[in-house]
């Protein structure tokens, strides 16, 4: 059980006392992170379920309301996040090859991409605020768009609405779902940025090398999941037609 390359009983500095080998520790940490990602999938999954139920039952709301979303900004954000995944994966590679400067650069770039993403999100949210396009309880649009009639003639016509002109009723629900999903996602981006910043600090200090890069790897896994969730959010919210 002890490596023949080291003297008997030698314990690498980064090895916790209850693990026998660095590989065992690394594998355990990785499994732990994957299980945490499983919980994140189910956490967001609840919102995807709400989305699915409302979209199935009220397609007219979704088809109408998504016009208010900014497709170009959403697409740019998607590209930005994909870039951040690249830099994060590259950071792991640098850490594995003990390339400290590369590691620091990649982590910094990842943070920069995340900041750009949040910046664009802020612009989007700001526009919604000005337009009065908030969640159901606060929905007060300053202008309404033309309703898009349902393609399927068997779908019921819009029930008469009580105050927002020719809109379908309860359009605010779309924005509830939109803000809940993108808002929760943004919170995860923020949390991820915090963790990456901490990893960056440790990288600058020289904590990571080919022997020990576990935290970088686990953080990267988390970051890629956040990217993956956006990969689904983008078409589901922005590209409905």
């Amino acid at each position: 059980m002890i490596s023949h390359a080291e003297p008997l009983g030698w314990h690498p500095p980064h090895l916790a006392h209850h693990f026998d080998t660095p590989r065992q520790q690394f594998a355990a940490g990785k499994l732990g992170m994957w299980i945490f990602l499983l919980t994140e999938v189910l956490f967001f999954g609840g919102l995807f379920c709400a989305y699915a139920v409302y979209r199935a039952n009220h397609p007219e709301i979704f088809i109408y309301a998504h016009q208010f979303l900014d497709k170009p900004l959403g697409a740019i954000n998607t590209a930005v996040l994909i870039l951040s995944s690249l830099t994060m994966a590259w950071a792991v590679r640098c850490a594995q090859l003990s390339q400290r400067r590369g590691l620091v650069l990649c982590l910094a770039l990842t943070l920069a991409c995340a900041a750009v993403f949040l910046g664009i999100k802020y612009v989007e949210y700001d526009r919604k605020w000005e337009e009065g396009l908030k969640w159901a309880g606060s929905y007060a649009p300053r202008q309404v768009r033309e309703p898009i009639p349902p393609r399927d003639p068997s779908l019921p016509a819009f029930p008469p609405d009580h105050g927002h002109g020719s809109e379908p009723r309860n359009v605010g629900i779309f924005f509830s779902i939109y803000f809940a999903m993108t808002g929760l996602h943004a919170v995860h981006i923020l949390g991820g940025m915090g963790v990456i910043a901490w990893i960056l600090r440790r990288a600058v200090r020289g904590d990571f090398s080919a022997d020990y890069f576990n935290p970088v790897d686990y953080t990267a896994l988390y970051w890629h999941l956040v990217d993956m969730i956006w990969i689904y959010l983008f078409p589901l919210l922005y590209l409905i037609h």
Partner: peptide, 14 residues
Amino acid sequence: VLKLGIFDPALGGD
């Protein structure tokens, strides 16, 4: 807190 409305029928929820 926000009147999100996803579960409240008064706001279109279920």
